[in-house]
Amino acid sequence: MKAFKNHFIFEFKTGIRDKNLLLLNYLFPLGLYIMLGFLMKNINPGFIEIIIPSMVVISILISTILGLPDPLVKSREAGIFRSYKINGVPATSIVIIPPLTTIMHMIVVAIIIIPTAFTMFEAPLPQNWLYFILIFLLTAFISAGLGVLIGVASSSSRATILWSQLIFLPSMIIGGFFIPQNLLPDILKKIGLLLPSTHAINLFRYYSYNQSIGYNPLWSLVILFISGILSFGLAIYLFNWDNQNKTRRGHPAFAFFTIIPLIIGAIFLP
C-alpha cells in the first residue's frame, strides 16, 4: 500500500512538474476553454448550453488520449520500465497509476471549469449532479484506458501521435461538442458513434441536461463501460517492459478489440 501511495503521489506530481504534461493536463484544456467560451458566446450560443460537459470531455480527451501514451513509450524506450521491473514494480501499477493521477488532474480542471463557465459565460449547470459525476468518471475511465492502450501498443512516439490524433481530431469535429449529432449527415453520425466522446456527450445531454438523444442512453453506458474494461485489460495484457525484448504476450493489433463495442454501437444505434 505504501508503494502504491508513493507511486501515485510521484505520478501526480509528474503531471504538474513535467512541462508537456502540465500543458496537456491544464494549460491547453483551460486555454481552449477560455478561448472557445468567449468565441462561441456570440457565434454559437447552442454550444454555451453544453459548454460545461463539452469542455470537461475535451479536457479529458486532451489529457488522456494526447497526454498518456507518449510518457509510456518514452519510459519504455529509456529503460525506465527495466529499472521498475528489477525492483519489483508490477506492470499493473505502471498501467493503472498514470490514468488514475490523470483523472485526478481532470477533476481539478472540471472544478475550475464548472463555476467559471456558470459565472463567465452564463452556462447552465447540470440538472443532476450525481449523473454528471458518474458520467464524468465513466468518460475518464474509457479515455484513460484508450490512452494507455495506445501507449502500450505503439512502437514509437510517432506512432502514438498518429493513433492519438486519429481519435482526437474526429472527436473534436463530429463528437457532438459543436454540432449536435442529430444535425450531422447519416454517415458522419455513424462515424461519430465510433468515438467515445460522442457517447459521453450524449450521456451528459440525456442524464444531466434532460435533452433527447434519439436512442436508449443505456446503450452508450454499456458501450463505454465495456470498451473501458477492454482497454485496460488489453493494456495490461500487451504491456512490454522494454523495446529490446521481443518477447510479448500478444500482437499489438489485439488493441483493436477495444473498439468492437463501439463498432457494434455504430451499426445498431440510430
Binding site: H7, F10, T14, S75, N87
Partner: peptide
Amino acid sequence: LQTSGLPDSMRVDEAMNFFSAYHN
C-alpha cells in the same frame, strides 16, 4: 543496470522512497 533510467522528474529522495517501498 548498464543502461537504465529513472523518470526525468524523479528526485533523488523520491527514487529512494519509491524503490524502498516496492521492496518493502
